Simulated scan of single mutants.
Amino acid sequence: MKPELEALLLEVPSPPISKLYGSLLEAYSTGVSPKRNKLIQDAEVRNHMVHRPEAEEISIPEVRTYVDHVEAAIYDLIKRLMPDDPTVTKIHRSVTLQSDSHERKPKKLKNGTYTAQFLC
C-alpha cells in the first residue's frame, strides 16, 4: 500500500461503489473496474434487502453471483497492483471467468422490490 494513501484507505468511510470502482479507481490506476456496473446493481439490491428485508427475497444463486462480482472486482484491483505476479494473473483469470458466467438481470417490481433472473 502506498504510504500516502494509508490513512485515507483505513480511516475514512468508504465512498459510494460507483465512485470507488469508477472515478477513484481510474484516478489511481489504469481505469474503472470492469465490474463497476454490476457492483452498483448488486449494491442497490443489497440496500433494499437491508432496509426492507421483509419485502426482499434473494436466492442462493443470487447471493453467489453477488459474491462472484465482488471477488472479481477485488482480484481486478490486486491484478492492477501486482501485474507481473503469475499467481495473481492465474487467480484473476479464473475468478473473472467464473464471475462472467453468472449474468444477473435484476428487475424492479411495482412494489419497489427486486427480483433477479439468471442466464446461467
Rank of each mutant, 00 (worst) to 15 (best):
I40M: 08
P15V: 15
E44P: 01
G22V: 08
M49N: 04
R36Y: 02
P16N: 13
E44F: 02
S29G: 12
H48D: 01
T30S: 10
G22D: 03
G31I: 10
K38W: 05
R36G: 09
E26R: 09
S18C: 12
P53T: 04
S23F: 02
I17H: 03
R46W: 05
L39D: 13
V45L: 03
L25I: 00
Q41D: 14
K35Q: 11
L39S: 08
S33F: 07
Y21E: 13
E26L: 07
G31T: 02
K38I: 13
V45F: 01
N37T: 02
R36F: 04
I58N: 00
M49W: 10
D42C: 07
S59T: 15
N37P: 00
K19I: 06
G31Q: 04
N37Y: 02
S29A: 09
P53G: 11
Q41L: 06
P15G: 04
E54G: 05
S23T: 14
N37M: 05
A27D: 13
K35M: 14
V50T: 14
V32I: 15
R52H: 13
K35T: 14
E54T: 12
E26D: 12
R46A: 03
S18P: 08
L39E: 08
E26F: 06
V45I: 14
N47W: 02
K19E: 06
V32R: 12
L25R: 01
K19S: 12
V45C: 00
S33R: 04
R46E: 03
K38T: 13
E57C: 00
E56Q: 14
I40C: 07
L24V: 08
E56K: 05
E56I: 05
M49I: 12
S23W: 01
T30W: 10
E26K: 09
I58P: 00
H51W: 00
K19F: 08
S23L: 06
V32F: 13
H48M: 10
G31R: 06
E56G: 07
N47A: 05
P16H: 09
V32H: 12
P34D: 09
K19Q: 12
S33D: 09
P53W: 03
V32L: 06
K38V: 07
E56W: 02
Q41H: 04
G31K: 02
R36M: 05
P53D: 08
P16W: 05
